[in-house]
């Protein structure tokens, strides 16, 4: 690991030096001139030319074979990509996911789920309308498909191949590639819908700072009032859904459509960004999934049925609860507190 890191520092420093010292075009002509000058003093010494070829950006290289970058004799950037992908991304990325799972597991076993303090009244409030839920679950299902297939593609060789054997794992990886490539654009579309649907209630308010300062009462158990979404959910919305969603979508599109004849170096860079962003996205999503299912009593039902109990609303989103009760607004734009029986019809709400 140390050796790889050291190689990396050296490579990065060299790259920086090259970039800073020669603008691209100037480098091409100067190396040709250097070669000509070298022939005068040392005939037969072609070192400047070979150095140029190794760097992979000589403009006077041609070939009769058609295709993308066929005239490039050597592209050393691939080695850089290999070291990054097989090194830090796989090793640190993999352990990061494992570590977050362990932390969440430990938190759950120590603190258990957040339960309601008062008895539920049975009076239900509409928190997520049909559109909200449809958008959420479309994004959620496509995200999980992409996460699982992405894990198979990056880590499967290390964790699944030894168990499944070559033939079965290859079949699984082929399926993963197809699912990843076809679901990817669906997720990108869902990301846009998610943003448009939930941006209004995710704008940062003054009381969100207070929520952050108290860590949402996660460790103390203290009650921290919040609007329709608390600051933690807002952080997930802006950093996860929006920022990382856009990053993985844009980089994913570059990788998904090689028919636009983009070069290898661009795809290597996009792959590195895609992998890092996706791993961070997955670790954040673990937190969101935990809070939405095991972590908070009643949270899953709110997105499953669209309705929450009055007590739940008061204890988790007090400002939102007051607004709904005052009749200003509710989830999905409707403002009426609903009765218990309408929970069954929540699907149609």
């Amino acid at each position: 690991m140390q050796a790889v890191l050291k190689q990396w520092l050296v490579a990065a420093t060299c790259a920086l030096f090259v970039v800073l010292s020669f603008p691209a075009v100037a480098a091409d002509t100067s190396s040709a001139q250097e070669q000509a000058a070298r022939q005068q003093v040392q005939p037969g010494n072609n070192a400047p030319m070979w150095r140029d070829v190794r760097s992979g950006n000589n403009p006077y290289q041609t070939t009769q074979v058609r295709g993308v970058e066929t005239e490039v004799l050597m592209l050393p950037a691939g080695e850089t990509w290999r070291q990054l992908r097989n090194g830090p991304i796989t090793i640190y990325g993999g352990w990061l996911i494992v570590a977050v799972m362990i932390i969440i597991g430990a938190y759950y076993s120590l603190k258990g789920p957040v339960k309601l303090h008062e008895k539920p009244t049975g009076r239900k409030l509409l928190r997520f309308g049909a559109w909200d839920r449809m958008v959420h679950w479309s994004a959620a299902i496509s995200f999980v498909l992409l996460a699982v297939t992405g894990i198979v593609i990056l880590f499967g060789k290390h964790i699944l191949l030894p168990v499944f054997g070559y033939s079965l794992f290859s079949w699984l990886a082929t399926a993963s590639k197809f699912i990843h490539n076809f679901v990817g654009p669906v997720f990108a579309f869902c990301t846009i819908l998610m943003f448009l649907t939930f941006v209004k209630d995710n704008l940062l308010k003054r009381h969100d700072l207070q929520w952050f300062a108290k860590g949402g009462g996660l460790l103390t158990g203290e009650h921290v009032p919040s609007g329709r979404f608390n600051a933690g959910e807002k952080a997930w919305f802006w950093v996860g859904v929006t920022l990382l969603g856009v990053v993985v979508s844009v980089t994913g599109f570059v990788l998904n459509f090689p028919n636009f004849e983009q070069g290898r170096e661009l795809m290597q860079q996009m792959n590195v960004i895609h992998a890092i962003a996706a791993i961070v996205f997955m670790t954040l999503s673990l937190g969101h999934i935990y809070m939405g299912t095991l972590g908070v009593e009643g949270a899953y039902e709110s997105m499953r049925t669209g309705y929450v109990d009055e007590v739940w609303a008061k204890e988790h989103h007090e400002y939102w609860y007051r607004e709904v009760v005052a009749g200003h607004k509710g989830g999905g734009g409707t403002a009426s507190p609903a009765v218990a029986s309408s929970m069954k019809e929540g699907w149609r709400a």
């Binding site: 990509w81 992908r85 290859s170 290898r264 795809m267």
Partner: peptide
């Protein structure tokens, strides 16, 4: 029989050796 056509060998190879016949829409490898 095991290759899934992901193109990673093509990213990594310094010599541009791996080749991919197009198989399906959108330049799928």
């Amino acid at each position: 029989d095991l290759c899934i056509g992901c193109g990673y060998c093509f990213y990594a190879c310094p010599f541009g050796a791996p080749q991919f016949p197009q198989d399906g829409a959108f330049g799928m490898r």
